[in-house]
């Protein structure tokens, strides 16, 4: 059977739309009847990634590929890239500007949370070019 493919554009300027794509992916997973724990993990990870795209990446695209065994998500932006991935993976490390922190974002938990809630996480990034994050959550 062909996997279900979902595709979403994420705005880089509009905070009010942040969470829309992850919300739709979550809704699809609920409708497909995945266990609530799987749905929750995917939704939180994608939401964190989506917020990152808005704050840092200047927007981008989110693609989801769903099979009964695995949910794969690819988040792609053409933003500034991550100079030091291991530093960015540290809990609490944040480069978010003040105006973003005032909105309650930018606590430095984005990437660590994505890792925590997924089974596989691959970051491909190049400074000045952009970042692609590939996530996998396996359905046990």
């Amino acid at each position: 059977m062909d996997p279900i493919a979902l595709h979403y554009d994420v705005s880089g300027t509009d905070f009010t739309c942040a969470g829309e794509a992850s919300g739709k992916i979550k809704k699809a997973l609920k409708e497909l009847g995945f266990p609530t724990s799987i749905t929750r993990n995917v939704a939180i990870a994608v939401y964190e990634g989506e917020i990152n795209m808005v704050i840092h990446g200047g927007g981008g695209v989110i693609d989801a590929e769903i099979t009964p065994e695995c949910i794969s998500i690819t988040l792609t932006d053409q933003g500034p890239g991550i100079p030091d991935v291991s530093l960015a993976m540290q809990e609490g490390y944040s480069t978010a500007p003040d105006n973003v922190r005032q909105l309650g974002f930018g606590a430095g938990m984005g990437l660590p949370n994505i890792k925590k809630y997924t089974d596989e996480m691959v970051i491909e990034t190049e400074v000045g070019k952009g970042t692609t994050i590939k996530l996998k959550v396996f359905v046990k």
Partner: peptide, 19 residues
């Protein structure tokens, strides 16, 4: 009580229906 929101009893069938 969320079974009613699922498209089918199993993921395969639900995927077919979603497509």
């Amino acid at each position: 009580c969320d079974d009613v929101m699922k498209l089918a009893d199993n993921v395969q069938e639900a995927m077919a229906r979603m497509s």
